[in-house]
Structure formats: C-alpha cells, structure tokens
Amino acid sequence: MALLSVEDLEVRFFTRRATIHAVNGISFDLDAGETLGVVGESGCGKSVSSLAMLGILPKTGRITRGEVRFGDRDLVKLKDADLREIRGRDIGMVFQDPMTSLNPVLKVGDQVTEVLRKHLDMDKDGARREAVAVLDRVGIPHASERVYDYPHQFSGGMRQRVMIAMAIACRPKILIADEPTTALDVTIQAQILDLLKGLVKEEGMGLILITHDLGVVAGICERTHVMYAGRFVETAPTNELFDRPRHPYTLGLLRSVPRLDASQKEKLIPIPGAPPDLSILREGCSFAPRCPYATDESRERTPMLEGIDGPMHRVACWNPVPDAEVATVASSSLEASGS
C-alpha cells in the first residue's frame, strides 16, 4: 500500500472579488523510498497542493473535495491538533526561503531540540544530543558548537541544511520539499540536492520535490508530474517523460529552456501567451489557448489523465504530441549526451 495517497484533491481560495480554482482534482500515490517530482510554473497550484495536504493553507483557502490518505487516516478530515502531531513527526516540510523559515531570535540548536521534544517526548539532554547528531547528519561542520549560533550566523546554504535537519529530526516517513534550492546558488544547490538524495536512500523516506526547474527533476526524481492550471497534465517515470513527452505543455517547457549542453545555438521555442486566469473555471483543456495542437474538442471538453504508451505514462490531452515530433527532441538530447 502506498505511503501517501492523494485522491481528487481540490483547493479553492475564496476572496472578496473572486473564487480561485487553485487545485482542480489531483491524484497521486507516494511509496516509501520514492522520489516524486511536481513541476510547474508559478501559480500552477504545486505549492498550494502541498500546503493543503498538511492543512496549512492561508486562511482564505479551503479543500473543497478529495482526500489525502496517510496510513489509515484521511488528513483532510483530521482536527487541527491531530494534524499538528503529524506535521513535523510523520511528514517533514522544507520551504524555499531559508531566511524567513527559521526563527531569528532562537538559537539553531534550540529550534531543532524543540521539534524533538515536542514530537518525541525526549528529555532535554537527549534531545540536545539528537539535535547535534541530526545537524551533523545534514552536513553542518562542527555541529556540536554551531547549535549555539543564531540563524543569521549561517549562510543561505547552511540555513537550508538546518531546515532540512528540523524536517527530518523525527525521522518522518515523508519529506515534502517545496523549491528547496531555488534561493540558492548552483554550487550550493548541487550540495543540497546531493544531501536530499542521500537521505532518501538511507532513511527510506518518500520525498515529494516541488520545483519549477526541469533540470532539478531530471537529476533526482523517479516519477514526475507536470502541473498546469491546477491539474496534472502529464505523469510518467522521469526518463520516459523527458525522452518522450506527450503533452504539448511538457514538450513546450522542454523546448523553451536553454540547455547547457545544447548541441548548437538553436533558437528557443517559447510557449506563446500566458497561463490562464484561475478565477474563471472553463470547460475544456486549460492549455488549449496556448496549444498548437488544440482542436474544437480540446476547447470544449476537459481531458482526463489517461494511460498512453503503457499504464505508467499518463497524459491529459485529446491530441497528444505525435511520436515523430517527439523524436526530434529526443534525438537532439541524445546527440548532446553523446558529446
């Protein structure tokens, strides 16, 4: 059985002027030891869905449908107090900005210790020893001394390590990392991704990695979901997704980012237009207005995720990109990897 199972999750924001359809029915399973990627652009609902799963939506947001099964419980139905127990103990979370996610007036050691004492009923000395151990585990040099430092005495990369330490201190079964490296420099990003990879491998955690960076997903995730306008539009094993993207949006994304290893200076092919206004929920595929393959059918009926090229590769599209077209992308990347 899956560790975490999300079924038809729908999240809306109710503001004075409009209702925003942030997440419109997403479903997925996460297994132990698995790394799952969720890619999409800002506003596609990737962050909102993870906040919703943990019950920490901003106050105008509500889960309007669906369930989030964790063990034998549905997190959507849990009371706040029970959710608080689960957050931090069974499910850890790492956010993008390590500057604002730590309390600036508390020593780093105390912040990690607090998590341990709250969730695991450890005594003070035990928790302190464990805090040093976990900080050491995430690669903070001289952890036994650094526990007495304040967050501002750490660099951005080190702070993100502290955040990860807090998230994994109670040995959670699941770690959700929301753009964990976006605020960091590339050389530091490489260190952090490496750390996350190691943690998944050794602790057997399930990792959900939310990012806008296709490169990050390619390097670390086994399965990837591509999200657009609150829906998964394509989901596949990562290799398969990059080799044979079948949704026009996925293909568009891959063609619009310059690659460091591109074989020549080819022109980028941007996706025309801009993402849709989520306050208006229209029938039909939400990518249709920007899609070169759109037909009348795509504008009228909303496509569901359905298996294509086998059950593992699913795509929500009436006119998936033909194989021939995909091949040109695949061959150019093949050429590049050979060089």
């Binding site: 660099s155 590339v186 490496d194 490169g215 390097g219 690659r259």
Partner: peptide, 27 residues
C-alpha cells in the same frame, strides 16, 4: 568546471552520467 558541473540539465540520461564536482563549504 565546478560551476558548469553543478548546473542541472533537463535530461535524466545526461544527469545520470555526468561527473559532478561538488565544492566544499560556502562562499
């Protein structure tokens, strides 16, 4: 060399084979 090797490339096959030079510590 380190900088280039740290840039993720949106291609799992390439990512798998790349040699990465991880830098120690911070700026």
């Amino acid at each position: 060399k380190a900088l280039l090797s740290a840039v993720p490339i949106p291609d799992p096959a390439v990512e798998l084979e790349r040699e990465r030079i991880l830098l120690k510590g911070d700026l």
